[in-house]
């Protein structure tokens, strides 16, 4: 937001703009479905008519990271995959949030084995951990509501000084 950067301090105008942007932001969280394994199916199920994630304004699953503000990492992250997850996270515009869905993403879960990263917080900042293997869709919806709470508590101005993420533009050769 450019407006609140010009008007410093807690004036009536800036706080009202803040309240408005918070409200808008939290009710239209666009998730980036980082579906990797089993949890991805339950994430899909949360979008189906029975659970209906659209009630929370998050039915717009964008498969390109540049249009998203919430990454749901659903499934076991292996070392080979971790580079991809991080790259996609880096491409998301600020402000952004991360849900670690399921035991595997949160802690490695039942896979105490050589290729699995024991918790994605080793390379990603995680906001909400969801328990379950895989979590039921209700659990994911609960996590989404908690993210909405968290967004509601975040001021738009908190992000104004943050530098833009460094996009990795690779030249040929």
């Amino acid at each position: 937001m450019g407006l609140e950067a010009r008007l410093n301090g807690d004036s009536f105008f800036t706080t009202t703009v803040d309240a408005l942007t918070e409200w808008a932001r939290k009710n239209s969280v666009w998730p980036m479905p980082m579906g990797i394994s089993c949890c991805a199916i339950e994430m899909m199920a949360s979008g189906d008519p029975k659970y209906d994630i659209a009630r929370f304004g998050s039915e717009v699953m964008r498969f390109t990271p540049r249009q998203c503000d919430l990454m749901i990492v659903a499934g076991t992250v292996t070392y080979k995959m971790s580079h991809v997850v991080r790259k996609i996270y880096d491409q998301m515009p600020d402000p952004k949030w991360v849900i670690a869905m399921g035991a595997c993403t949160s802690s490695g879960g039942m896979y105490r084995s050589y290729p699995v990263v024991q918790g994605i917080d080793q390379f990603l900042p995680v906001d909400i951990y969801v328990a379950g293997c895989p979590p039921r869709p209700d659990n994911l919806l609960n996590a989404l509501m908690q993210i909405q709470d968290k967004i509601g508590r975040t001021k738009a101005r908190d992000f104004q000084d943050k530098p833009l993420p460094e996009l990795t533009v690779i030249q040929n050769n």
Binding site: I36, S37, G75, T76, T78, K80, M81, V84, Y111, S113, Y114, P115, V116
Partner: peptide
């Protein structure tokens, strides 16, 4: 392949 290799056989 291998982005979801979880080592089942070793487990």
């Amino acid at each position: 392949l291998g982005y979801l290799h979880r080592g089942y056989e070793k487990l």
